[in-house]
Design a protein around this nucleic acid. Structure first.
Lengths: 111, 111
DNA sequence: ATTGCACATCGGAATATATCTATATAGATA
DNA sequence: TATCTATATAGATATATTCCGATGTGCAAT
């Protein structure tokens, strides 16, 4: 490619792609305010630990493997982190990385 | 879809998708600072009128139809406007819309 | 009128993405 | 140990995206 230099690390384009799916964007929104969107969990705190895949699956109305795949893409883009407790995997937004991304994006396309 | 309500207007997801291609992102970056990336034009001003498809095509290293397609996607997402002068079509960033988008995105995924 | 130029549109091929079902895995419980 | 539960992985299919070459369109200059 003449115009692009992708030789680097974790690309901002990968991060944008991670947000470029309506379900992933919605799920990230839910995770940002989990108490408004999910019931309390027995073995984990919605805010501290995150939201389990089962809850996300039910709310999204997709199959569990599809939701897992979406969440892994959000994780690869560093927008969320995951933590396993007992049988559950909890996804939680990484607000620092999200903020970094927003500023990086603004730096590119704003004056 | 259980989780999504796309019945509305010009979706933010469409805007994100428009940025989710490395060439489109790059070209929008170029357009934000056209004097740094393109030579002066005879019949139009780089800043006031925008950059012609030919220049974008040459710099991107893609075919002209591909660049046209990319630019149309950016235009559909309202990130750029286009103006025809003589034989040329000039694309220019819509900074107001870009700012609106950035704030809308922040409003969704930032605390 | 004819030609040439710049861009748009069309059609098709290659690749990527999204989704599902079926199955595997890991941890907890009986 | 055997089983259940929650999530991950694998494989398949449908759709979307990206890209190009060929062709169409509109305007300008000859």
């Amino acid at each position: 490619m003449a115009a692009l230099d992708n030789s680097g690390t974790i690309d901002i384009s990968e991060q944008i792609k991670a947000l470029a799916n309506p379900y992933r964007l919605k799920m990230l929104e839910w995770l940002m305010d989990p108490k408004s969107h999910f019931p309390e969990q027995l073995d984990a705190d919605l805010v501290e630990d995150g939201v389990c895949v089962g809850f996300l699956t039910e709310k999204a109305g997709l199959s569990q493997p599809t939701v897992t795949s979406h969440m892994q893409k959000l994780a690869r883009a560093r927008f969320v982190t995951s933590k396993k407790i007992k049988n559950w995997v909890y996804y939680r937004p990484d607000q620092m990385q999200i903020e970094n991304f927003l500023q990086a994006l603004r730096g590119r396309i704003a004056p």
